[in-house]
């Protein structure tokens, strides 16, 4: 954007983000250009940078090794508890489901057994009658004749 200039209010609103490197490149150039020419905005930028440096007076801390140990111990304990709870839940479900399943099977057996027996009884005679086969005994002499006739 050639010739475009930012106003002081626009620059001041963006100063913190500018110092943190969080403004787009095109805007960064415009703000830098403005700061080189505007003493008030440059002074404010300087003071904001000073604030960031002053905050370093309250130093960083690190977590002691015991944090990792305590977290892992707690997590292992929780996992064991969760597994126990899951096993207990499955046992409770089985305790309720097993008698229910047995009851359903018994009910089905009682209601369907007579029907099954009747249909079996009806079907048992019919195929036997249909599949009657006549058996004829061939005498030995006739059999020999048959064999000879086939061979020669």
């Amino acid at each position: 954007m050639p010739g475009y200039r930012l106003k002081c209010e626009e620059v001041r609103e963006e100063l913190s983000a500018y110092l943190d490197g969080e403004v787009p490149i095109w805007k960064r150039g415009l703000i830098r250009w403005h700061l080189m020419r505007c003493r008030d905005c440059a002074a404010e930028a300087f003071e904001l940078r000073m604030v960031s440096r002053a905050l370093r007076a309250w130093g960083d801390v690190t977590a002691p090794r015991s944090v990792v140990e305590n977290v892992m111990r707690a997590v292992r304990l929780r996992r064991r508890k969760m597994e126990e709870e899951r096993a207990r839940l499955i046992a409770r479900i089985l305790r309720i489901a097993a008698p229910v399943a047995a009851g359903v099977i018994a009910l089905l057996w009682i209601t369907l057994l007579p029907a099954f027996y009747l249909s079996y009884e009806r079907g048992k005679v019919r195929p036997l009658r249909d599949e009657l086969v006549t058996v004829r005994v061939i005498p030995q002499s006739e059999l020999e004749q048959l064999v000879e006739g086939r061979m020669f």
């Binding site: 309250w58 801390v61 690190t62 977590a63 944090v67 990792v68 977290v71 892992m72 997590v75 996992r79």
Partner: peptide, 23 residues
Amino acid sequence: GDLSAFELLVLRYKDEVMNFIYH
């Protein structure tokens, strides 16, 4: 369920989290 992966995450971020909460 890999606890060693979780331990690695704790080791990686414990100081950052501690620093944030402390401040």
